[in-house]
């Protein structure tokens, strides 16, 4: 009884299963399979992107560290250089100031010397003039008071000498 397939059942089942297989294949499995495939692809791409982003990030970090290191190095280098420069500038300035001062002093000395010489020359000239004047006065004037003249010349010479 159970082992004999019923013809009507076979025909109905063929129709029903055929229609179901066709409908599901076309309107259910196709979009579902496509959606699943699409999602898998999307996940795959996303994962790969995430991985590359992570790699990029770690690369960036490394780069950053390198840059930071370099910057730090540069900074200390600059500082060192700055110190050296500063010392040099100060030393130079000192040196220059010293030479300038020396030069100024030397100039002053020279000028003093020169003025002194000029003064001496001038003095001599005046002495001569004065002496001539005095002599003129002494010679020309009445030599009444010899003692007084002598005293006066003496005093004059003394004055010259003092000068």
């Amino acid at each position: 009884m159970f082992l004999l397939p019923h013809l009507g059942t076979i025909i109905w089942t063929t129709i029903i299963f055929g229609i179901v297989a066709f409908i599901l294949g076309k309107y259910a499995w196709k979009p579902l399979l496509r959606a699943i495939h699409e999602r898998e692809r999307y996940i795959d791409i996303s994962l790969r992107k995430a991985k590359s982003a992570r790699e990029m990030l770690s690369n960036l970090k490394q780069e950053q560290e390198v840059i930071l290191k370099q910057t730090r190095h540069n900074k200390s280098e600059l500082l060192k250089e700055g110190t050296v420069q500063r010392d040099k500038i100060i030393a130079d300035a000192k040196e220059k100031a010293r030479t300038d001062a020396e030069k100024i002093i030397a100039d002053a000395h020279k000028r003093v010397q020169k003025e002194r010489e000029e003064a001496l020359v001038d003095m001599r000239k005046q002495i001569t003039t004065l002496s001539i004047d005095i002599a003129t006065k002494v010679v020309g004037a009445d030599m009444k008071d010899k003692e007084r003249h002598e005293q006066m010349v003496k005093k004059l010479v003394e004055d010259i000498e003092l000068n």
Binding site: H6, G8, T9, I11, T13, I16, L24, L32, A35
Partner: peptide, 30 residues
């Protein structure tokens, strides 16, 4: 010749209906 919609065929139709409803809804969602 007997093409009756017997109990098994009705069951089969019911199963097909459930299957179609569920998968179509899922396909729409997907």
């Amino acid at each position: 010749f007997d093409f009756s919609l017997t109990r098994a065929i009705v069951g089969l139709l019911l199963a097909s209906l459930i299957l179609i409803l569920v998968t179509f809804r899922t396909a729409k969602l997907a």
